[in-house]
Amino acid sequence: MLEIKCPYCGKRSQNEFSYGGDATIKRPQLGEEISTEDWDNFVYYRDNPRGKHSELWHHVSGCRQWFKVSRDTATHEIFDTCKMNEDFNV
């Protein structure tokens, strides 16, 4: 079980959180003209890297904040966590 540092609450066990996918995905602007290919890339296609990955987690059984986690998908090492409006330090 991972130990994740919520930027608001501190270190908590994984079972308080839910995973929210790739944090680098940007939703297209509302009303934006967008090709089907670009839209499909936004909705369906995700990289599946081995190694460092920026991802979203939700402190569902805690403060209910979404935040960013930089994690190694192979070793599960967590390099850093930060609020949505911040950048990772490492």
């Binding site: 839910s18 929210g20 939703r27 979203l56 939700h58 569902v60 209910r64 904040q65 979404w66 949505m84 409006n85």
Partner: peptide, 14 residues
């Protein structure tokens, strides 16, 4: 639904 709303408010349209 609550998680969905929080996601859009916190991540997409802060």
């Amino acid at each position: 639904v609550l998680s969905h709303l929080e996601y859009y408010l916190q991540v997409v349209w802060p």
